[in-house]
Amino acid sequence: MIGTIASQAAGRLYAAVMNLPERPMRWAQGHLPDGRLGWLFVGPNLAIFAVFTFLPIIVDFYYAGTGGTNLLPTERPWVGLENFASLLACKDYFEPNSCVRDQFWYAIWNTVKFVALQVALMLAFSLVTALVLNRKIIGRGFFRAAFFYPVLLSPVVVALIWKWVLQRDGVLNAAFVGAGLQPVEWLLSARSAFGWTVFVSIWAHMGFYTLILLAGLQAIPADIYEAAAMDAAPPLRVFRRITLPLLMPSVLVVLVLGLIRAVQIFDEVYVLTGGGPGSATTYLVEFIYNTGFSAQVRQYGLAAAASLLLAGVLLVLTLIQLRGMRAKGSSRG
């Protein structure tokens, strides 16, 4: 009863609000030449794109070419390629201490290590999980939901959950003590903090990739497997010759999406470790954030230059993805 009244009221409200543009739109329809009306519908969305996406890209280039700490573009001295030059000035690229911007190079190498490890492990775990979930399993919906649930959590929440588990008096150390081991300060040693950032980001995101792979597996027609069974193909052969090749497009999507996301890792790690200990878990986006926003001296130009370098990497990855998707499209016929 209350439900129907509420839905009626909602319907009235919807109609009242949506009726407001009726007169101007009708007028425009009558007075605009054929086909211009489409622009009126696209316009608002496009305008916001223009202000908050297209314009910033242009401004990004300007910032990257200017120095100083003032936010206003008119107050910023033009320095040309100096920002890029200082970012890239290095005696030995493998030794960040020898670079002018050592933090940048620490961030780069941390990110490279992180991406390689995180993407490889996440792909492996997602694939195994998807394959297991694709079996006839009782409660499959529940298990799928359980693996997916962390994807929806706020990165801050994810970080706090694990911070709570990993703290010195946390449940993990309790288990260690229970097993007769010494408690460990998980987030205070460089190696283990790095390891946990990899683990936590896999924990938080693998459900998403599992879902994509599962969809790919379920798109493989069952009659192919039946035909293989009629041919008495051994399971390993079925997996290698049928499942894997047919799943390859999805694997590629996962790989590239995972790469693009991993390169941009920030939120969880920022809350979990704050980039530390030292700069052991400072990744690229955190470097940009620190340089442009959290440091005492806000070096917008340097941050913008680093953003553009990151954009270059992402562009390459996206192009790879597009080619992969084209391959996927053609393989589906």
Binding site: V42, N45, L46, F49, V51, F52, T53, F54, L55, P56, I57, I58, V59, D60, Y63, L71, L72, P73, I260, Q264, F266, V285, I288, Y289, G292, F293, Y300, A303, A304, S307, L308, L310, A311, L314, L315, T318
Partner: peptide, 25 residues
């Protein structure tokens, strides 16, 4: 227009952090 919008799918917000802050300001 459609392609332009699709292209923005590939521009991660982290990259335009600095200029977006300027525009917001």
């Amino acid at each position: 227009v459609f392609l332009l919008m699709l292209a923005t799918l590939m521009i991660p917000p982290t990259i335009i952090l600095v200029p977006n802050y300027l525009i917001a300001a």
